[in-house]
Design a protein around this nucleic acid. Structure first.
Lengths: 134, 134
DNA sequence: TTTCATTATATTTTTATAAATATAACGAAA
DNA sequence: TTTCGTTATATTTATAAAAATATAATGAAA
């Protein structure tokens, strides 16, 4: 019988929650994402996946490096490509190396913009938590 | 056989997601909450519950008015009271009218502060979405 | 034409969480 | 002392989402 290790976290998006730096007894936390026609378009997890694809050149390697199932990674990328004006990622099937995946220019731009917004959100949280008096 | 109506929504916190007003092809959305020692302390749903308690003077009436189970409402209130420096809500058990619940001064203050922060978050989203070029 | 690592897709299983259900405790007033 | 609507608490059930699993399809190079 195969014992399989479970890796599920309480909240799979836990790493995507931003929190105020200034700690009091209470902390201000938040999440931010961009929606398109079908729902979520870009979020922190999707951006992390794009960055891994850029680094490793393959969906399956990227997924494995993030402890994510290939299927889940593929679903996310498919969702992003469907909703983007131009695809964020291009895939190639077959060949000796099996295929591969790389970011498009639009993909690079999307990463940059999302990260900038995330930085501003972090600043907002830090600024705003100071007003709390609970 | 009793047919019971299910009311579950896709995301029970759907109403607590803020979205940018300015619509392009993409929208910026986010959530914000305050955490204490045990985890979530105040969020949009908890604030709505506090406001209903203020209005109706009872946990059970407030819960019913929000289509929330009494247990869930009680759990939320208990969690808030445990984490707050001073209780946000005071309950009374028994008596001809069964009992009742009302907000404390700390409860009123918490509502005000959370709503102010939420307004600022809305502004942040509106301002930030304009920078997007996807 | 065989190989091989990859992309692509369908189906089943697991799990956390919400929701439902049940029931006890309370105490002022009639 | 009985009643009644409330608070307080434990247990069970249902659901959506994540994760796991299985299996095709691809095509360049050896």
């Amino acid at each position: 019988m195969k014992k399989r290790g479970r890796k599920r976290k309480k909240d799979p998006h836990l790493l995507c929650i931003l929190e105020s730096e200034e700690k009091k007894d209470f902390q201000l936390k938040g999440k931010l994402w961009i929606e398109g026609k079908e729902g979520t378009f870009l979020g922190c997890g999707r951006i992390a996946l794009l960055e891994k694809i850029k680094e490793l050149g393959s969906i399956s390697k990227a997924a494995k490096s993030m402890n994510m199932s290939y299927k889940h990674a593929w679903d996310l990328i498919n969702s992003m490509n469907r909703q983007a004006k131009t695809h964020l990622v291009e895939t190639k099937i077959g060949g000796k190396k099996g295929g591969g995946t790389h970011l498009t220019e639009a993909g690079e731009k999307a990463i940059q913009q999302f990260k900038e917004i995330y930085r501003e959100f972090q600043e907002f949280l830090n600024k705003t938590v100071k007003k709390l008096d609970l």
